[in-house]
Nucleic acid binder design. Structure first.
Lengths: 231, 231
DNA sequence: GACAGTTTGAAACATTTGTTTAGAATGTTC
DNA sequence: GAACATTCTAAACAAATGTTTCAAACTGTC
């Protein structure tokens, strides 16, 4: 952001067409989805010609792929960095601290109203109806974060078998994404009455519930019912 | 299903065009979304003429609305009925039983591979990019189930303030939907290695985690930080 | 200023889109 | 059987879609 020279006064016009198209595509693809977004929607939002998409990106599908990759690598790397910071702390975080920071790590890139919702929407869409080459979403974006989170939880949490740790991370992620989606839906409808809690209070509930759940999992391990899976 | 006479041998051809279109629309709208599904896709799947959609439903958007309503009222009523059965049991269910049955109630209509995934997909899409009149999804479908679930939990669970009970239901729903979406994604990619647990074991984790979370919430109520919200 | 390379613009391309039209087929009623 | 309403089909409609074409405009270099 700060890297641009201050020659031009208008920040939008400092970006070249390539970047303006990418920005418009991020907004529109996230907002309305791939099919509901026409190339002309994008180019008119970007203030350029229809042909520019094909000149700069080689087609609508290629633009979508580049859009998705540019957004999601940003999201992933930011999360991985925050997770790395957390786990590098000199006294290892307590379980409470870990769960709370985990929520921040997962949500912080998503709650920024500019790009946050776009992230969530485009990932959600990709989960239901993938438009990317198969496996890209899972292997490049979901699994790395999943792996690190599971390892981190296993380190700070109570004694948990690997599978239980993974399931606990899934439980936490599910809670966070669902409450965020619900928040967006309710905000759109102006129904602030349905979930009368501030973000702080919602976070407190999440930590409370999840820490309780993790302890319960540690006290009652899954493994005993598993006949030592061949691996 | 059993109400049809056995005059015709071919079950598909016993349905009239109206129903065949509706069935095809359910499949395709859920599978690919509203925009990616063309009227011709639907009519060719239903084996009828393009004009039939407009004749029987008055347009693509009307067909979508009818499709959504027919699917979701089915889903909602089935869940509400199961929830009613559970709470009508002579000895009130324990918290463990409640959480376990809650999972069944939420998932059972969704795991049937025929229609289950269609339900989940179409609801998910409606949450990110509504195509229905605003509020229909929330007020007709989500809130009734939410209300009943919260009330039921408050009845069988430990002492929980209303807001905490609601948040606990949210936590449970979030977990269930997320693990189901993950299951679908992984199944599509053939990655059975990522989540090496049977449905029974996943259910066991869910119950364990959620019961632990609920107890933790009861032990540490949210209310004390709330300055008695004006209502 | 002339030149080569890059970027942009207006127009047109062939498809596909949702919808409409008019008429044939079908079943029902008198 | 005639008149009727209902349901279906083929064809056509205008509008929107992603993409291509090609000349104009711009860029920097000599």
């Amino acid at each position: 952001m700060q890297t641009e020279t201050d020659i031009s006064v208008h920040p939008l016009e400092t970006e070249d067409t390539h970047d303006r198209i990418l920005a418009a595509a991020q907004k529109l693809f996230s907002d309305k989805g791939y099919d509901a977004t026409s190339v002309r929607d994008i180019t008119s939002e970007a203030g350029c010609n229809v042909a520019s998409v094909n000149y700069h990106f080689g087609g609508k599908d290629k633009l979508y792929l580049e859009t998705f990759r540019s957004m999601l690598t940003l999201l992933r790397d930011r999360r991985l960095e925050m997770m790395g910071d957390l786990m590098a702390r000199k006294p290892s975080p307590t379980l409470d601290e870990f769960v709370q920071t985990f929520a921040t790590i997962m949500l912080e890139p998503l709650v920024d109203d500019d790009r946050g919702r776009m992230f969530l929407n485009i990932v959600t869409r990709e989960m239901i109806a993938p438009r990317l080459p198969p496996g890209v979403l899972l292997e490049e974006f979901l699994e790395p974060m999943m792996e690190r989170s599971t390892a981190a939880l296993a380190k700070v949490g109570p004694q948990l078998d690997p599978v239980s740790a993974r399931m606990c991370v899934m439980s936490m992620v599910g809670q966070l994404l669902h409450s965020l989606r619900a928040h967006h839906l309710l905000a759109d409808l102006g129904r602030t009455d349905v979930l009368p809690l501030s973000q702080t209070e919602q976070l407190r509930h999440f930590v409370r519930f999840s820490v309780g759940g993790i302890h319960a999992c540690a006290a009652d391990p899954l493994q005993d019912s598993l006949p030592e899976v061949t691996q």
